[in-house]
Design a protein around this nucleic acid. Structure first.
Length: 277
DNA sequence: CTGTTAACCTGAGTGC
DNA sequence: TGCACTCAGGTTAACA
């Protein structure tokens, strides 16, 4: 479920329900996530008020009211492949894989659900400085640091496929399998091209298309996930706008040529052999 | 260093 | 219905 647009949608949906609320209690039912929820997490979070939310790549951040007036302690939430968060009434029936509750002071809970447990919930004390997980991350796609010139410079000498390059979180965050495929289609670039052989002009177009696709998806996520708090987890919000992802064998929506499928770095990669060079 | 692969884990879907 | 098998939106550790 979660690429950048969905994480951003979830962040926007949950923000009015959690900001201003105090975390009255932490209930850990299963700490075995991508990294275990540390034993001291409850002590870290309980009694703290959430003052804002933010996002870095696919990491969702809950900012806690400083205990000393200045320190920006945060809770990190990552959804992995199958994670979801809901804001529910505290007595809402528990489902399998409901691993964590942040019980709020208004009778509701922020509930973390993740069947595959590839996600994470971690404390990020301000004293730690830049978190190790954020250390190696590339720029945000909507920041000035992300540009065609940046991609061009970063890719010189690289022989890896441009799609693999684009999906590398150290290059840019937020371009997962779907949006990497869609951006490359819109930019007319074949996913298999060695990154080092893609021209500056092509990267300039690609950077613009990455932003365009992510922004469109966020806009749509915002509408279909409006009932976030009710939380039945709408899906398929961007489906009707996909040009290549999951469309193997179907006619290209631009030229009619059947969409091809190949595997790159163990991930499905669809492209149009006519539109992408 | 770069690039590729396996691994983490469960559930859904497919084919026999 | 059951079983075996494949695949999935992410990321990192371990390799060559």
């Amino acid at each position: 479920m979660p690429e950048l647009p969905e994480v951003e949608t979830i962040r926007r949906g949950m923000t009015p329900h959690v900001v201003g609320r105090t975390i009255a209690k932490v209930i850990v039912r299963d700490a075995r996530l991508r990294w275990p929820i540390p034993l001291h997490f409850a002590a870290f979070a309980e009694g703290r008020r959430v003052i804002s939310t933010s996002r870095r790549g696919k990491y969702l951040l809950l900012h806690l009211e400083p205990l000393d007036g200045v320190s920006d302690d945060k809770i990190i939430i990552h959804l992995g492949m199958s994670g979801r968060v809901f804001v529910l009434d505290a007595n809402h029936a528990l489902l399998k894989h409901d691993h964590l509750d942040l019980v709020l002071d208004d009778g509701r809970v922020l509930r973390y659900h993740d069947p595959r447990r590839f996600g994470a919930v971690l404390p990020w004390p301000a004293a730690e400085g830049e978190h190790a997980l954020m250390q190696t991350m590339g720029p945000e796609p909507f920041s000035d640091a992300f540009s065609g010139d940046y991609l061009f410079a970063k890719s010189r000498g690289k022989t890896a496929a441009v799609k693999t390059f684009l999906m590398d979180g150290g290059v840019v965050v937020g371009a997962g399998n779907i949006y990497a495929a869609e951006s490359l289609f819109r930019a007319g670039i074949r996913p298999t091209r060695p990154a080092g052989k893609v021209t500056r002009a092509e990267f300039t177009l690609l950077a613009a298309k990455v932003r365009e696709v992510l922004l469109e998806a966020i806009t749509q996520g915002g509408t279909t996930l409006r009932d976030f708090a009710g939380a039945d987890g709408a899906s398929g919000y961007f489906q009707q706008d996909l040009y290549v992802y999951g469309r193997e064998g179907l006619p290209c929506r631009v030229c009619g040529t059947p969409i091809k499928l190949l595997r790159l770095g163990n991930r499905q990669s669809c492209y149009c052999p006519q539109c992408q060079h």
